[in-house]
Each structure stands twice: as C-alpha cells, then as structure tokens.
Simulated scan of single mutants.
Amino acid sequence: MDGGGDDGVGDARDDASLTIGAFAARARLSAKALRLYDRLGLLVPARVDEVSGYRYYRAGQTEQARLVALLRQLDMPLARVAEVVHADGDRAAGLLDAYWSAVETRVAGQRTLAEYLRGRLSGRGSEVYEKFVVETVDVPERVVLSETRHTLADELSPWIGASLGRLEEAAGDCGGVTAAPFVVYHAEVSMESDGPAESCVPVADAAAARRWSEERGRTWQTRVRVEPARRLAYTRITKAQVAHPQILAAFEAVEEWIAARGLTVAGPCREVYFADWEAAGPEDPVCDVAFPVE
C-alpha cells in the first residue's frame, strides 16, 4: 500500500532511487498511471520499501515510461503495449507495425461505413443498391459437411477461412467437393451479436461423410446434414465488396429486390464462395450474397 510519501517529489538528486512523485514528473506521467503499469508488469519499480510500500525508480527507467505513454497515445491496449515493451528492437518495431496496420485497416473500413451511412441518412440509399444486379438460381438438394460457431464480426473472416479449409480437406475423404462452399448466417453477426454462423462444404459421399464426422469431426464439432433444394435470390460481388460496409449494401440490395417482387425470404442468408480467394484481385468476382426465396 502506498503512503503519502509515495506521492512526494522526493530528492531529485538521488537518481538511483526516485520516489514515484519525482519519477512521474520526469516521465510526464501520473502516479496513478505508474501504479497501474506496475500492476500490469509494464513498468516495475526498481525497488519497493518492505515497510512503507513506497515505490522507487531509477532515472534510467524514464525512457521506458515515456515509451509506454507514447504507445498509449496510439490507443494501443495495455496487453499489446506489454508485448512491445518487452520485445527486442526489431520484434518491437514489427509488433508496432502490425498493430498500426490493423488500425489503418479498421479506420479505412469505418470511413467507408460512414460514407455508406451518410448516403442512407440523406435518402440516397437506393443509389447504392442500383449497382447490384440481382438474379435467381435453383440449387439441388446437397449433403454438406458443416462447422458452426458463435463469433463476433472481428473474428468472422479468420474463422471462415480456417473452417472452410478444414472442411475442404475433410471432403477428400468424403468423395470430394461437389459445389461451391458457403457460409450460412443463422443470426446476425456484428460486434454485438455472435450469430451463429455455419460454414458448409457440399460433398459427394454421404455415408463416408457421416463416418468421418463420427471418427474425426468432434475436434471442430463438424457435422453432416442435408441442405434442401432451394431457389436463391443473389447478387455477385467482388473481393473488395466483401468488406464492410459494401457487403451490407449487397445484402440489403437483395432484400430490396425480393420485397419489390412480392417474394418471401425462406431461410437464413448466406455467402457462396466460388473463387480462389488468395488468387483473386480486388475487382475479381468471388462471392454470391444470397437469400432463399419462395
């Protein structure tokens, strides 16, 4: 426990043993922040008096303290700050680069979302929908290997890639893949709602798929089910449009098209991935956004 002397300025001449108040002044941080950084292991005092509990710092710790403060000005979470602070020079720089790249990606997405919302709020939403061509297609009954997960939006894309990869690999023991993989959204996936979402890969051999699921599918909670024949209303989008908010506009465009023609949505929406994602460029078609209709 810190006493009143813990917050004092102390003897600034004693650089080997600065009180928390003196060190806070040097580092341009508050004593409260230093206590928090100590608890989290970000910046541990040089020593703590066993009797009084006072924290003492070395003058040489000032640079690390200022580094922590600067990283926090980037809105870096404290756990990520700890990783950077405890890494060596090259690795620390790499961790910073990775964090900032993610920030720029997020901000770019938010900027696009703001522009999209501005159009909706100003009554120009129909202009956004007009660029999507909606058609229908009849798909037959299919046996699918599937994997279901509750996931928030920030974890969705990595999970889709990983789960479809696992299912496509398993399909090799089930007669092979017979149609494009797809992801079904049984409920909304956002930063507040976790679905669930279901990755599906159509396979040729139902009996082999069931055997595979019973023997090896438990690790990822893989199951086999029959996807009934359906008529889908869909629009085809590019790799760039798969990102938010463009994909939201695609879903809404299909819903608008369905309502305008007096049709009824007959099941959960889905994304059908028919192209090689890694090989595709930003303007290459990769995905159909679809709703079952009747």
Rank of each mutant, 00 (worst) to 15 (best):
L117A: 05
V128C: 08
P140L: 04
T136P: 07
V133R: 08
Y129P: 01
L113D: 01
G125F: 01
V134D: 08
R124C: 07
R124H: 14
V137S: 08
Y116M: 11
V133L: 10
T136R: 14
E135R: 09
D138C: 02
Y116P: 00
E130A: 15
S126T: 12
G123W: 11
L121K: 06
G119R: 15
E115K: 05
V137A: 12
A114Q: 09
D138M: 03
V133D: 12
L121W: 11
E127H: 13
V137H: 05
T136K: 11
V134N: 10
Y129L: 06
E135H: 03
R111V: 15
V133F: 01
Y129K: 02
V133E: 14
R118A: 14
E141W: 00
P140N: 03
Y116D: 03
L117N: 03
R111S: 13
L113S: 12
V133Y: 03
F132I: 10
R120H: 08
R111G: 06
S126A: 14
Y116L: 05
G123R: 09
F132N: 03
Y129G: 00
G125C: 05
S126I: 05
D138G: 04
V137T: 11
Y116N: 09
P140A: 07
A114R: 10
E130W: 03
F132P: 00
E115W: 10
Y116F: 08
T112W: 05
E141R: 06
E135P: 00
E135L: 02
V133W: 01
V139C: 08
T136Y: 05
T136I: 12
V139S: 06
F132Y: 15
G125Q: 14
T112A: 15
R111K: 12
Y116E: 04
F132D: 07
T136F: 04
V134C: 15
R120P: 00
T112M: 11
R118L: 02
K131S: 15
E127Q: 13
V137W: 02
V133Q: 07
Y129Q: 06
S122G: 15
F132H: 15
A114I: 09
L113Q: 06
R111C: 09
G119E: 15
L121A: 13
V139R: 13
R124Q: 14
Y129E: 04
L121T: 12
G119C: 15
